[in-house]
Design a binder for these strands. Sequence first.
RNA 1: GGGCUCGUAGCUCAGCUGGUAGAGCACUCGACUUUUAAUCGAGUUGUCCCGGGUUCGAGUCCCGGCGAGCCUACCA
Length: 547
Amino acid sequence: MSHALPPLDPAAIAAAPNARAWPFEEARKVVARVQKSGKKEAIFETGYGPSGLPHIGTFGEVMRTTMVRTAFRLLTGDSIATRLISFSDDMDGLRKVPTNVPNPQMLEAALGLPVSRVPNPFGSDAPSFAAHNNARLRGFLDAFGFNYEFASAADYYTSGRFDEALLRMLDVYDEVMEIILPTLGEERRATYSPFLPISPRTGVVLQVPVVERDVARGLIAYIDPDTGERVETTVTGGAVKCQWKADWALRWYALGVDYEMSGKDLIDSVRLSSRIVTALGGTPPEGFNYELFLDKDGAKISKSKGNGLSIEEWLTYASPESLSLFMFGKPKAAKRLHFDVIPKAVDEYFAFAASAQSQDAPALLENPAFHIHSGRPPAYDMPVSFALLLNLATASNPENRDVMWGYISAYAPGVTPETHPHLDALVGYAIRYFLDFVEKNYRAPDDVERKALADLSEALGALPEDADGEAIQNAALDVAREIERYQDRSRVGPSGGPGVSGAFFQMLYQVLIGQERGPRFGSFAALYGVANTRNLIERALAGELAG
RNA sequence: GGGCUCGUAGCUCAGCUGGUAGAGCACUCGACUUUUAAUCGAGUUGUCCCGGGUUCGAGUCCCGGCGAGCCUACCA
């Protein structure tokens, strides 16, 4: 379910007129527009194309639009109602079979049909391909706690909610053609029509020229491309859908959209749709064009290439709020969206949330955490940063959270998964990040090293299972002291003999955990368990780790 | 052809409405541990792309260049 809008803080409302953060700059445009029109509510729209699954850009658009909406509420003190409509264009014809869906042959047979009529290849309960994707969209919007109203193009068309606007479109048909035709290539120009009839014979969305129209009766006629027959149809009731740019204009006009943002690639579409909506007698919505995301190398992110990050990938390694923070930052700058930006986003999010707790209203309105949470940033106690957890994960070779927590609790007494569930979540993310990204290069031990390891294992065996880090460290040093290779004569041991060289410990990391660096061995073994550590040594000696 | 963004420390970037440059990483040194990691402390690092202009004062505003990248002209 769509979540409720949080109440506003009066102090924030008071400070809003002076706020400079970009959502406020955007919202001021909407305030001016609504004041001019005298409307009693402001409509914010985000678009979605259900021929594909919702992606990270879809999320960004809803997140950012919600931020503008919150700013609008603050500027108006909620004296003007707001709605966020998430509009799914599920009347759109299926143009090609996506590569990443099951049962592609099922879709192959349905090419050209409105996606709301294409059978569902996913095996879910949804009645159609679009319905499945729509459900996914709603599911993830809900998971993020957005307040929104879902709208389906197919519903709007077939229920007649677009009828008046469609008749209007028919009325200004010539003007629309004048706007669009000069922008088209010769070939497309010959077939272009703002109305795309749904073939009553095949159900396919047709791209055919209109050969005749009757404005008074709301009819158009076209030639069926297969049969050559002349077909007459109403423009209302779902018998036709509008071509993309006309469709956008139709929606703006019919819904009274006041604000919609879109990617930079749609600048020209916005311009044309704006002209069409003006022709219809409406006023184009306010909005702005955000930059597209780039991958690690600065190349455009495309779904087919699979570069860039999916929402799922981000949420595998970090919290939703960190993704929101990424979306808040500089929407007009092309930002690189890849794994390396995740840790920074996580820590900055918590830093912003922390400073929000002590800020006055004017400062709060500039704080990203304020915008991410629609004005109510939560309080956290995060004694350890995500960056530190990642280092810790790399150094401690964790197989589970307990090992990590052993170090954390030693570092920050009294901090446990129970007292700090948010930190526990980060521990989970850090381990996954470590498992997926940190490379391990185990080295096979030579003969001297094998002997050292065997001796170490034996020495560990003499210790109780609950031996502390100190005892284990001393046992390890005693073993190393007897081996010439690890004697360091520039150091002095406790009994006056040579000290132990760091090379000994480095060997342990390389052989046992596949890292150049590692934790203090004693504390590592204590947390990992003496028996487990011995087992690890056995596996190294048996050649199970290297290679 | 039209449009957008960026150019600040070795790297990735932050610098809001103009007041003599910051963070993280890296690097150096130190503390702690019988010289490994983590952690903590300290330190170094910059013709703020170039040239003009406005100003008492510009990384910050204006104009003009140069460079990098992207989008768009076929489909939604």
